[in-house]
């Protein structure tokens, strides 16, 4: 008996049909298929199992698999919706959908809140904000005095923590972003609109019409 390896059987665990993902995200079917090309590349960079491991995400973001980064850790945790230690294709597409230029702003605001709520308490706390500032300074090899960093964090809290309870809740965050819309600029990746140009190989193999 022969063994026929069909295209379907080669799909990794967690693979979801592009038509399903396109219906639930701002992406078209073609764009989801192009994202699959990107996903395949990322998910085979260290362990070729069709799943993105944390080291693979770090490698893609920083060209270094061993360099721990606060942002990469948070992104990984938020993308890993099932919390099983890997990012599956469906999780990858749904999460990236939030970064699409056409995604609802409310989704971007909520995602940024969860990103900055480092310990997932439902609040952005003073020490979390300071930790993020320290992380970005470390990232950029910038040195600022602790006093200066705390002044910046204090000032930000005095503007954003309108209830004055020492922590920023989602409601305060939404209000703060509405006054400072540039804060969610990093929640939009214009590149996602051109994803089919970046990964054109799918055009030859695409099975579904948009």
């Amino acid at each position: 008996m022969g063994c026929v390896l069909t295209k379907k059987s080669r799909r990794p665990p967690g693979y979801e049909e592009p038509t399903v993902l396109a219906a639930e995200t701002p992406f078209t079917v073609s764009e989801v298929e192009a994202l699959y090309e990107l996903f395949k590349k990322l998910s085979s960079s260290i362990i070729d199992d069709g799943l993105i491991h944390k080291e693979e995400l770090q490698l893609a973001l920083f060209r270094n698999r061993n360099r721990r980064n606060l942002f990469a850790d948070r992104i990984f945790d938020l993308f890993d919706v099932k919390r099983n230690g890997v990012i599956e294709f469906g999780e990858f597409v749904r999460s990236l959908g939030i970064f699409h230029p056409n995604a609802p702003v409310e989704d971007k605001i909520a995602f940024a809140f969860r990103l900055y709520d480092l310990r997932q308490t439902g609040f952005i706390e003073w020490d979390e904000l300071k930790e993020m500032v320290l992380a970005l300074l470390h990232e950029s090899d910038l040195v600022l005095s602790d006093d200066f960093i705390e002044t910046i964090v204090n000032k930000t809290f005095s503007d954003a923590d309108t209830k004055g309870d020492g922590k920023i809740d989602l409601e305060e965050w939404k209000e703060f972003v509405s006054k400072n819309p540039s804060l969610i600029k990093n929640m939009t990746l214009p590149y996602l609109k051109d994803i089919t140009l970046a990964f054109p190989s799918f055009v030859i193999s695409t099975e579904v019409e948009d």
Binding site: A60, R63, S140, I152, K185, N186, L189, Y191, A198
Partner: peptide
């Protein structure tokens, strides 16, 4: 000297806090 810098603004602008590198070839 008043500080007008916003900590979230700093974070959101930081290169290391961006997903853009995912798309670099």
């Amino acid at each position: 000297k008043p500080v007008s810098m916003n900590a979230f603004e700093l974070i959101s602008r930081a290169q290391g806090f961006s997903l853009e590198n995912l798309f670099e070839k």
